[in-house]
Design a protein around this nucleic acid. Structure first.
Lengths: 257, 257
DNA sequence: GTAATAGTGTCTTTAAGACATTATATG
DNA sequence: CATATAATGTCTTAAAGACACTATTAC
């Protein structure tokens, strides 16, 4: 079945057992917003969701699992993840990040299968469009807590937990918050997105830290119109708020400075 | 050759090409010290080294490569890396960290081989003992710059570069510096180790930052003897220096606080 | 004394942290 | 005017940054 090592006669034939597959599993996160209050303008409530699919074949038939699939010989595991992400969500350009490999013997009853786990961050707008098109009975968004309370297929509960830890760390140390925000956003929205992913996050003087601290200043900038005057938004508030956008500066953190 | 999917008759036979192996490659870093000055006590000069082995079989015969080997069906890729690390260095308990997967089609002329790259940090004392025992002609420590200037086997130059980037980031955001230091060390040694891995690192008031800043205070602590008086060392200096040790506190960094 | 490393004093500027206050727009 | 969010004022404390200065000990 494996036609390999044909290149060089001298090379010792492959007498070893070889893996039965190198799939990817993708933890696709999104944040859904719900308008809270029709009477007065107010910030929506947001919650973190993860996409699961219900398996219809052995093994773990009927159980919910992470989307994913087998890597082909002609692609990298990253390309495979891109392909699967596109198939499930229709999304081409999302944040897609490799985070771990799962290789416990026995993790898959089909054989010796080493899985490569990715996490993807998808904006709800992009996703909502797609959901209507896809057969909704097999694909669903679950809140992270719901998902963790399910009896997921394979070692997907572990993978989900690891992904969650990773996305929380990334949310605080990189600018991935931008994946969940429009190009231009208010400080309130940014703060809310961070808290949605990292519930224990709290900074009293958030606006000041992010706008006036030397070391952080520069990761976001005020949006101005062509006359140079500041652009405001009152999407979510009575009083219009300053709009910001992320620059392409990535902060360098250090425990020693 | 692959005896799989025997569990369930209904499961569609594995009609797909499967990988020819899932090896690990390990980037083993160490820091070597050279005494600088026999006349006066002074800090040694330190340099970052990486362990390479010279291949003696096809493919890439005679080229230098990262140590590593094929994962077995009965172990995880992490166990495989542990096993290989032990074989090369004799070291059981070192910092060993998975950092990336390499799966470009064609990266290995032997077939479809997906490699899992680890980085290991080993203290020079442990390593020096071992080196005498091992046949030195096939295993060598190269300075990182030397290694990068070699024509390494496979995609190992890329892997080494990625590992280097990762260890630099880890050096500044975690307490892995301890892997290169004795249990008890002086501020001067710590500073030097950081600079060895991250040459551009420079902090004027380093001693004050690390000992008196609220947010950092706590990752290292002064060493005291049983009477509670401070322990000093003059290994490397005329004037004895305070000894410190790492606590088991891991700092949490954030760009938003 | 000189050299080499360790560590402190002092002053200025910047940031953090807490909280009250003001600002703006909606219904 | 009540409400909801945005943003500033003010005061205290902590930390950063610069740099001169003192401390210790081998030779």
């Amino acid at each position: 079945m494996n036609s390999m090592f044909e290149n060089e006669l001298n090379y010792s034939a492959n007498k070893y057992r070889t893996p039965d597959g190198a799939p990817t599993d993708i933890v696709i996160f999104t944040i859904l917003s719900k308008e809270k209050n029709k009477v007065k303008k107010s910030l929506p409530s947001r919650e973190l969701y993860v996409m699961l699919i219900q398996r219809n074949i052995w093994p773990y038939e009927r159980k919910w699992a992470l989307p994913g699939g087998f890597t082909r010989e002609t692609e990298t595991v990253y390309s495979c993840a891109e392909r699967e992400l596109k198939e499930e969500t229709g999304v081409d350009l999302a944040h897609l990040e490799y985070f771990n490999v799962y290789s416990d013997p026995g993790r898959d009853p089909r054989g010796w299968i080493i899985s490569h786990a990715f996490l993807a961050l998808v904006n709800e707008n992009v996703l909502e469009n797609r959901r209507a098109a896809v057969d909704a009975s097999e694909v669903r968004l679950y809140t992270v807590n719901e998902a963790l309370s399910l009896d997921l297929a394979f070692d997907h509960r572990q993978i989900l937990q690891d992904a969650l830890q990773r996305i929380r760390q990334r949310m605080l140390t990189t600018t991935i918050a931008k994946e969940f925000l429009p190009e231009e956003f208010t400080i309130g929205e940014l703060y809310q997105v961070i808290q949605t992913v990292v519930p224990e996050f709290e900074e009293k003087n958030f606006i000041r830290k992010i706008t006036s601290t030397q070391s952080r200043k520069g990761i976001i900038e005020e949006v101005k119109d062509r006359n140079g005057s500041l652009e405001l938004s009152n999407r979510y508030s009575q009083r219009a708020a300053q709009l910001y956008r992320f620059t392409d500066l990535e902060p360098q953190l250090s425990i020693y400075s």
